[in-house]
């Protein structure tokens, strides 16, 4: 098997070398055949010329435009995005300022309300105090009057008692005025 393989490879090599030997003779190695040089060069120049012409005039310019448009678009979008971002930052700042303002205002309202409520409470306490003091004074005055009344009637009662006692004890009638002058 191996021997036949080897002998076959030998025949192929010899066939190839036979071709090579032939090429030096009547049939030339095709890539070196000068008979076809002119047609090869001519058609290569024609086809490459067409390719170059169409590419340089049309298609490559179009591709370049597409890429340029895209990069323009992207830079535009990036610009827009950064502009919007700065706007958003501005809005955020604005909002924060509004928030702090509102907070301060709310604090002020709370303070004012507290003060007014405090003042009202003080006022009503004071009013209640004043009323209570007034009533206490009125009551005191009444007590004082009642006491002085009572005290003034003590003299009369004492005089009455003394007149009655004198009548009973001494059997004499003495006038109340007399007794009063004696007592005082």
């Amino acid at each position: 098997m191996i021997r036949t393989y080897l002998s076959l490879s030998v025949t192929t090599v010899s066939a190839a070398s036979a071709v090579a030997a032939e090429s030096s003779g009547e049939t030339t190695f095709p890539p070196f055949d000068p008979g076809y040089f002119s047609t090869q060069i001519f058609w290569l120049l024609i086809s490459f010329g067409i390719l170059y012409f169409v590419l340089s005039r049309g298609i490559l310019r179009r591709v370049g435009q597409i890429l340029e448009e895209r990069s323009d678009h992207i830079t535009d979008d990036l610009d827009k995005a950064s502009r919007m971002q700065s706007q958003a930052r501005e809005a955020q700042k604005h909002r924060e300022r509004a928030l702090t303002d509102a907070r301060a205002e709310a604090q002020g309202v709370v303070e004012a309300t507290r003060q007014s409520v405090d003042a009202e409470i003080k006022r009503s306490i004071a009013a209640a105090d004043a009323q209570a003091g007034e009533q206490a004074e009125i009551a005191e005055m009444r007590i004082r009057k009642m006491r002085s009344e009572a005290l003034s009637r003590i003299d009369e009662i004492a005089a009455d008692v003394a007149q009655a006692a004198i009548e009973k004890v001494a059997g004499k009638s003495v006038t109340v005025a007399r007794i009063k002058s004696v007592l005082n």
Binding site: Y36, S38, T39, W43, I46, S47, F48
Partner: peptide, 21 residues
Amino acid sequence: SYDLSFTNSSLMMLIAVGLIL
């Protein structure tokens, strides 16, 4: 004296150009 025949090679060149375009 120049041979400018259209050959199988010319055909392949034109096919290549045509495919690219």
